[in-house]
């Protein structure tokens, strides 16, 4: 029984790790967002596994996943908005070229 939980948690951890790698290693804003998406996906896997195997009666667990999904979508919407604005001004969304965003 817990085997499934462990498998899910390990998968979530690996997805999270890939996401961390992507977010740190990519130079492009959009690619960085992909890393973040993967990290969130890993987190969601964990959340669902916890809900299913530890507290299937507590639906706030599912609610949490819904909120994470919303965050994912909103992160993308705002991220793309910034990307468009940046591209319009500077002609690039490479983060290495984004000195002014680093402050």
């Amino acid at each position: 029984m817990t085997a499934v939980l462990i498998v899910a948690l390990v998968t979530g951890a690996i997805l999270f790790g890939i996401g961390v790698y992507g977010a740190l290693s990519q130079t492009n804003l959009v690619m960085i967002m992909m890393g973040v998406e993967l990290m969130l996906a890993g987190a969601m896997v964990n959340l669902v596994a916890f809900w299913r195997f530890l507290h299937p009666e507590a639906y706030s667990g599912q609610m949490f996943v819904l909120v994470v999904m919303t965050v994912m979508a909103l992160e993308m919407a705002v991220g793309f908005g910034v990307a468009i604005a940046r591209f319009r001004v500077k002609g690039s969304v490479e983060m290495e070229e984004a000195e002014d965003l680093k402050g």
């Binding site: 002609g91 690039s92 490479e94 290495e96």
Partner: peptide, 12 residues
Amino acid sequence: ASGFMSMIEVTK
């Protein structure tokens, strides 16, 4: 010459 190809230069 920064380490990667500069997108700015492509688009300017």
